[in-house]
């Protein structure tokens, strides 16, 4: 369980609060979406889960460990992985497998053990055939999967994803999105997924909307598709399918219930045939 308890954050003393007294909890295995406008503080929030940033006031507890205690940080970071938007900025080594090994090497783990974990992580992200490659010869999506493998090699319980596909070419996105969901459903790793793309987190258990220094909690995004005000506050485009149905409404064609995902719409239309 990760607990944010009355967390405040400002970058500089006397400057305005980016996060203003927020509290929430995230359980093991959950899939949480985090949304909010540009500059609302999502990335700042992301960096507090594993103690890269420490609350200016309040505290963050990871399975009971306090991120303010420097001697617990390594334990915390083994539990909480953090994936950033740009894969190029996260890969340390000029050979794929060496990069995936980086975290394990930092922990002083035995070479044979590292080898096993590296191979396993690369297999998980479907990159095992590239293990001897230099990262600069890979596509953006492949590089992001290498970065992900480097985190998975540490066997985290929670994965914080700061817009993991925002800098990836469209063709590479689907694979990463699918892999992440699989890691959640099959390995039980909790996902804390920041995005501007509603489609990515449509299956989330809950969403957190970051706005004006506060965090609001909502239930399943799928049940909120018709609630335009929430998505407006989150700075998120409604799904094309929602817009489509709202436009149909103007012509007197009204689906009930109003909330559909693309797949449900497809199923629905096929049944009409």
């Amino acid at each position: 369980m990760i607990e944010f308890v009355n967390v405040h954050y400002y970058y500089k003393e006397n400057s305005s609060l980016i996060l203003n007294n927020i509290s929430f909890t995230i359980n093991k295995g959950e899939f949480i979406g985090i949304v909010g406008r540009n500059g609302s503080g999502k990335s700042t929030l992301a960096r507090m889960f594993n103690g890269i940033l420490i609350p200016s006031k309040g505290k963050v507890l990871v399975d009971g460990l306090d991120t303010r205690k420097a001697e617990d940080l390594i334990k915390i970071r083994r539990k909480v992985g953090l994936l950033l938007p740009n894969p190029d900025n996260q890969i340390v080594s000029s050979v794929v497998e060496e990069d995936v090994a980086f975290g394990l090497e930092n922990l002083g783990i035995k070479p044979e053990e590292i080898r096993l974990q590296v191979d396993e992580a690369l297999k998980l992200v479907e990159m095992e055939e590239f293990k001897k490659h230099p990262p600069y010869l890979l596509s953006g999506g492949q590089k992001q999967r290498v970065a992900l493998a480097g985190i998975l090699a540490l066997k985290p319980d929670y994965l914080v994803l700061d817009e993991p596909t925002s800098m990836i070419e469209p063709e590479g996105r689907k694979l990463i999105t699918g892999l992440l969901k699989q890691i959640n459903s099959e390995l039980g790793v909790a996902l804390i997924w920041i995005t501007h793309d509603l489609e990515e987190i449509i299956e989330a258990d809950r969403i957190l909307v970051v706005a004006n220094g506060k965090v609001k909690e909502y239930k399943k995004p799928k049940e909120l598709l018709g609630k335009a005000d929430i998505w407006k506050e989150a700075g998120i485009e409604p799904l094309a399918i929602t817009q489509f149905m709202q436009n149909l409404k103007q012509y007197g064609i009204d689906f009930k219930p109003e909330e559909f995902t693309v797949q449900e719409m497809v199923d629905f239309l096929c049944r009409l045939k």
């Binding site: 960096r47 594993n50 890269i52 390594i74 970071r77 083994r78 992985g81 953090l82 950033l84 740009n86 190029d88 900025n89 996260q90 340390v92 497998e97 060496e98 090994a101 980086f102 975290g103 394990l104 090497e105 930092n106 922990l107 002083g108 783990i109 035995k110 070479p111 590292i114 080898r115 590296v118 970065a147 480097g150 985190i151 540490l154």
Partner: peptide
């Protein structure tokens, strides 16, 4: 500069702590 800040974040997130007791994949 952005690259450097991100890299430091990514390295720390993967338990980098300076010299310490590091090991190596390829010995």
């Amino acid at each position: 500069f952005q690259r450097a800040v991100d890299l430091a974040t990514a390295m720390e997130s993967r338990c980098y702590q300076g010299e310490g007791e590091r090991s190596h994949l390829n010995v």
